[in-house]
Simulated scan of single mutants.
Amino acid sequence: MEGIIFYWTFWVLWICTTFFMSKTNPRRVKYTVIILFSIILSSHSIHFFGLEVSVVSIFLLFLAYFEVGKMKGRSMAYFLITSFILMLAYGSFQLFELFDPVWLILDRDWMFAVVLTYMTIMMHKEVFKRVIALIFGSIHGEIVYSLVLDVYSMEIPIGSLQFLDVISISVCLILAWSGFEKLTSLFEGHVYQLEKGRGRQS
C-alpha cells in the first residue's frame, strides 16, 4: 500500500517531537506543526499547468525555499549545486526505472532511498541541511521527471504517495546515520579523555 511508510514514519516523528523533545527547544513546535501539516496535506492535490501536484510537495518545497533563502554566499551556492546534483540523480533513477526496470533487483523504494541518502550524506555534514537538500533536490527531480513525461503525453503526479514513501525512508536513514555519527564522536571523545588521563598518571 503506497503511503503507509510515510504515514507511519511521520506519526512516529510527531510522537518524538511532541513527547520526547525538550519543551525548551525552540524548534519543537516548529517541527511538530510541519509534521502534522504534511500528514494533513498528503491526501490533497491540485492541477497546475496541466500537471497534478500534491499539496504536501508544494508545502515542503515552500519550506525548503524559505530555509535556502536564509543561507548566504558560498553556503547557498554549495547547497544549490548539491541540490542540482540530487535533482539529476532523482530524475535519472526514475528514467532508468521506466525504460529498464530489470536492474531493480531489490525493493524499488529502498534502493531509491539508499542512493539518495548516500549522496546527501556525502555532500552535507549537518543533519538539517541533509534533510533540506534531500527534499529540495527530490521535489525538483519529481518536477523535471513529470515535465519530461508530459512531452510524451504521460501524466505523472508530482509528489505522489510513493514519492513520500521514498522521502520518509531517506529521512529515517539520514537521522539514523547522523545519530550513529554522534555516538561515534562521543565514544571517540570518551576514549581520548581516558587515554589523556592515563598519560597524566604515567
Rank of each mutant, 00 (worst) to 15 (best):
residue 159 G to D: 07
residue 158 I to G: 04
residue 200 R to S: 05
residue 95 L to T: 13
residue 3 G to W: 03
residue 80 L to F: 09
residue 110 W to F: 14
residue 83 S to I: 07
residue 46 I to G: 00
residue 153 S to W: 06
residue 92 S to L: 13
residue 60 L to T: 00
residue 168 S to P: 09
residue 38 S to M: 11
residue 95 L to V: 11
residue 30 K to E: 00
residue 24 T to E: 14
residue 124 H to P: 10
residue 168 S to C: 11
residue 42 S to G: 06
residue 140 H to Y: 12
residue 133 A to T: 00
residue 48 F to P: 02
residue 78 Y to E: 11
residue 135 I to E: 01
residue 130 R to P: 03
residue 85 I to G: 03
residue 87 M to K: 05
residue 47 H to S: 09
residue 90 Y to N: 10
residue 134 L to R: 10
residue 171 V to G: 01
residue 180 F to V: 12
residue 169 I to C: 07
residue 130 R to Q: 13
residue 138 S to L: 05
residue 108 R to L: 11
residue 32 T to N: 07
residue 64 A to R: 11
residue 138 S to N: 10
residue 70 K to I: 00
residue 96 F to A: 03
residue 160 S to P: 02
residue 200 R to H: 04
residue 73 G to P: 00
residue 58 I to E: 03
residue 39 I to L: 15
residue 3 G to T: 06
residue 129 K to P: 09
residue 78 Y to S: 00
residue 104 L to S: 05
residue 110 W to K: 02
residue 143 I to C: 11
residue 25 N to T: 02
residue 36 L to C: 05
residue 107 D to R: 11
residue 6 F to H: 13
residue 69 G to C: 06
residue 108 R to A: 06
residue 159 G to N: 05
residue 20 F to V: 04
residue 87 M to D: 05
residue 194 L to E: 00
residue 7 Y to Q: 13
residue 27 R to A: 06
residue 41 L to C: 00
residue 196 K to G: 01
residue 105 I to K: 07
residue 146 S to I: 10
residue 56 V to P: 04
residue 26 P to H: 13
residue 199 G to A: 14
residue 82 T to F: 15
residue 107 D to T: 09
residue 20 F to P: 04
residue 113 A to P: 03
residue 64 A to W: 14
residue 104 L to G: 07
residue 155 E to L: 11
residue 5 I to V: 15
residue 85 I to D: 01
residue 109 D to F: 02
residue 55 V to R: 05
residue 202 S to V: 02
residue 128 F to W: 14
residue 58 I to A: 11
residue 91 G to L: 06
residue 88 L to Y: 03
residue 113 A to F: 12
residue 154 M to S: 06
residue 113 A to W: 14
residue 4 I to E: 09
residue 67 E to H: 15
residue 139 I to R: 01
residue 185 S to Y: 10
residue 132 I to G: 05
residue 54 S to C: 03
residue 7 Y to T: 07
residue 86 L to K: 09
residue 88 L to V: 09
residue 17 T to A: 12
residue 86 L to A: 04
residue 17 T to N: 13
residue 21 M to W: 03
residue 18 T to F: 00
residue 169 I to Y: 15
residue 195 E to G: 09
residue 83 S to P: 01
residue 39 I to W: 13
residue 172 C to R: 00
residue 118 Y to G: 08
residue 152 Y to G: 03
residue 183 L to G: 14
residue 75 S to I: 01
residue 85 I to W: 10
residue 196 K to I: 01
residue 50 G to S: 10
residue 150 D to G: 09
residue 50 G to L: 09
residue 33 V to W: 09
residue 182 K to G: 08
residue 26 P to D: 02
